[in-house]
Amino acid sequence: MTRVVVTVMPRQGVLDPQGQAVRGALGRLGFSGIHDVRLGRRIELELDGPDPLGTAREMCERLLANALIEDFTVAIED
């Protein structure tokens, strides 16, 4: 079994209203020097099979990410 971590993030250039809301809240708590905050999603998959990364990529393309607004990365985690 292989543990694959999928990270889905809003595409660069696409406004991320949730990230902006978090950024505002951090500023109100007194944190300064925040250039940007972006919110994404981490998905942990535990997979059998010969090509877990390829399988995870196909899962992203077919369901886990929406290519119009999101980018994804896949990585094997020990």
């Binding site: 209203p17 809301a21 929406n66």
Partner: peptide
């Protein structure tokens, strides 16, 4: 939209 039967996607409102 998610099914690809219409173009685009619906995102979180700008007001969140």
């Amino acid at each position: 939209c998610e099914a690809g039967l219409l173009p685009g996607v619906l995102r979180t409102n700008a007001t969140t």
